[in-house]
Each structure stands twice: as structure tokens, then as C-alpha cells.
């Protein structure tokens, strides 16, 4: 299998002596949907910045589809499409022009770029807005514009840095479907996100970066299997004054008189909880996860690595 991205001993020390990356190693295979997760300031954007030539590395090596980003910079860049975290297009240009200019920078002739631009804008629901100034678009539309722009030269590797930040859930889900389709058609995708539900839904493999180091790198399912406990929120009909003590040993905490939190270890089931609460005359109305599973694992890993969130 071809390696889409290979990072070896990558280090970055900024001018203020802040060590953003402390020698990370990472491999992403062609066709993967790969998640790069980490708390703010962990080094995700620095890593992406180095891959895309926006940040100078201090040491180490980065190869994109076998092309070294320094020795064979042009070939490496041709393979990459980037959707950055912040809006980085000319807000005073029409939407269509933003996309077509990017095609031009990659050497795509206009007669090829126009149909591609139409496909990208239609796929992302922006075709009707193509003549509007980019600054007139809503936040969600601007994010989609950056995705359309990143795809215009048919990159083999698409890097998305927090692509759904500030996007409402309905739109986010439609963007997930679009990205899944892009990935299915053969584009390797690297995603950083704060929405761990998003990473769990989309990514087949994950790396967690913290304080400039990769603290976990595995298949998403394998990672989730490492999750030792889950926390559930139970909405109860009774008016509780204190959290009931469960003889089965499950820790409980009262959030409010009608809301109870229960921590369940992986090998434990929920039946004893229901039975005991039922015996105590507590009627359960509904139940939900406190956080999604990946979020719990993420918090466990990051907290154990010493970061205060």
C-alpha cells in the first residue's frame, strides 16, 4: 500500500523558544480517513502548517506520496489540498473567482477548471452563490467554499483543519456525507477536529497529539476498545435530595434533583444499576451518554499525559 504521508522526527521550535513539536512520527496510508486530534496548542495546526509549506520546520522529514516537501516541493504540493482553520480567501472576490484562481495556481487550464468548479460548488450547495462576493456568504458557506477550493485541482491528499467549526449540526452532517464520498472515490483525508463525534463517525485511524508528541496512534475501533469506562446521565421522575449509594459499587453523582450521573466500568453491565434504582423506588425516564465514547477516551489520554484542559 502507498504511504500518503510520512512524518519522521518532526520538530518545530518557534522564535520565542516554544517547542511546538517534539519529534513526531506519523504515517497515513493512501485512501485512509485519518483523524489528528488533540487539545488546543497540542501541535495539530503546526504539523499541518509544515506539511503545507506554511510553517518552516526545525528538524525532521515530511514526505507526501513519496515526495520530500523540501527536496521535491512542487510535486509534494501538487498532491495536497488544504482546508485551513481560518478563512483565508479574498473576501472581496466573487465565490467562483476564488475557486478558479486556485485552479490557476495549480496550473489547471480554465476550460478544465470551469466544469470542476461547477461540480464542486454544486456539490457543496454554493452554485447559486457563485457570483456573490465571498464576504456575503454565511460562516458555513465560507467553510464549504474552502472545501470546494481545496478540491479544484483534484488533490490526492485532502487536509481539513477543523472544517466544521461553527457549522450547525445539519450542515455538519451533510458535509460529513460529502467528505465520505470524496474519500470513497480515492482521496486520502486527514482531519483535525474538536468534535470527537465527527472523528468517531468519519475516521478509520486516529492519532492523538498532545504537547508536541503523539500519545496515541491506532485504528479507531482499537482505540475505542481501550475505553475503560462510560458515564451515563439518567433522568429520573423522583425528586432526589442526594445521590443514591449503589451496593454494586458504581459511583454516582447528583447533578440536580432529577438528574443522576453513573459511571460504569467496561466489564460491567447496566442491569444492576436499573435493578437497584428500581428497588429503591427511583423511576428512570431516559438515559444518555455524558460524552461520546471517543471524547471520554480522549480526555483520559490527554489528562494522563499531564495536560490540564
Amino acid at each position: 500500500m502507498t504511504t500518503a504521508l510520512k512524518i519522521s522526527e518532526l520538530k518545530k521550535v518557534y522564535n520565542n523558544n516554544f517547542e511546538a513539536l517534539k519529534g513526531i512520527n506519523l504515517e497515513v496510508q493512501q485512501g485512509d480517513f485519518f483523524g489528528l486530534l488533540g487539545p488546543n496548542g497540542a501541535g495539530k495546526s503546526t504539523t499541518i502548517g509544515i506539511i503545507t509549506a506554511l510553517v518552516n520546520k526545525t528538524a525532521g522529514q515530511v514526505e507526501v506520496f513519496g515526495h520530500d516537501i523540501e527536496e521535491n516541493a512542487m510535486a509534494a504540493r501538487r498532491c495536497i489540498g488544504l482546508v485551513p482553520q481560518e478563512f483565508n480567501f479574498n473576501q472581496f472576490e466573487p465565490v467562483e473567482e476564488v475557486v478558479l484562481n486556485q485552479a490557476g495556481y495549480y496550473g489547471v487550464p480554465l476550460k478544465e477548471a470551469r466544469p470542476r468548479c461547477e461540480w464542486a460548488l454544486k456539490s457543496l450547495g454554493l452554485w447559486e452563490k457563485r457570483r456573490n462576493m465571498a464576504r456575503r456568504l454565511s460562516g458555513g458557506m465560507k467553510r464549504r467554499l474552502m472545501i470546494a477550493r481545496a478540491l479544484i485541482h483534484k488533490p490526492k491528499l485532502l487536509i481539513l483543519d477543523e472544517p466544521t467549526a461553527g457549522v450547525d449540526i445539519e450542515l455538519r452532517r451533510s458535509m460529513w456525507e460529502f467528505l465520505k464520498e470524496v474519500n470513497t472515490k480515492g482521496t486520502t483525508i486527514i482531519l483535525t477536529t474538536h468534535y470527537l463525534e465527527e472523528a468517531e463517525q468519519l475516521c478509520r485511524n486516529l492519532a492523538i497529539i498532545d504537547q508536541g508528541k503523539i500519545i496515541e496512534n491506532a485504528n479507531t475501533k482499537t482505540l475505542l476498545n481501550k475505553l475503560n469506562k462510560e458515564t451515563f446521565i439518567l433522568d429520573v421522575k423522583n425528586n432526589l435530595e442526594e445521590a443514591p449509594q449503589l451496593s454494586c459499587g458504581y459511583p454516582t453523582r447528583l447533578i440536580d434533583p432529577h438528574c443522576l450521573e453513573v459511571e460504569v466500568q467496561r466489564e460491567q453491565g447496566l442491569n444492576p444499576v436499573f435493578k437497584e434504582l428500581n428497588d429503591k423506588g427511583i423511576e428512570i425516564l431516559s438515559m444518555r451518554n455524558k460524552a461520546n465514547r471517543l471524547e471520554e477516551l480522549f480526555l483520559d489520554l490527554v489528562e494522563s499525559s499531564g495536560t490540564t484542559l
Binding site: 503545507t52 512542487m74 510535486a75 485551513p84 480567501f89 479574498n90 486556485q102 495556481y105
Partner: peptide, 18 residues
């Protein structure tokens, strides 16, 4: 300077343009 200020200079910096 506008391209720097609006960060859209990055469009060119990431592209395969010498």
C-alpha cells in the same frame, strides 16, 4: 499586504508555484 493581512497569500504559498 492585503493578501498577507487576509491570509490569502497562503493560497499561493501552498500551491506548486516557484
Amino acid at each position: 499586504y492585503g493578501a498577507k493581512f487576509g491570509h490569502y497569500v497562503e493560497e499561493m504559498m501552498i500551491a506548486p508555484i516557484p
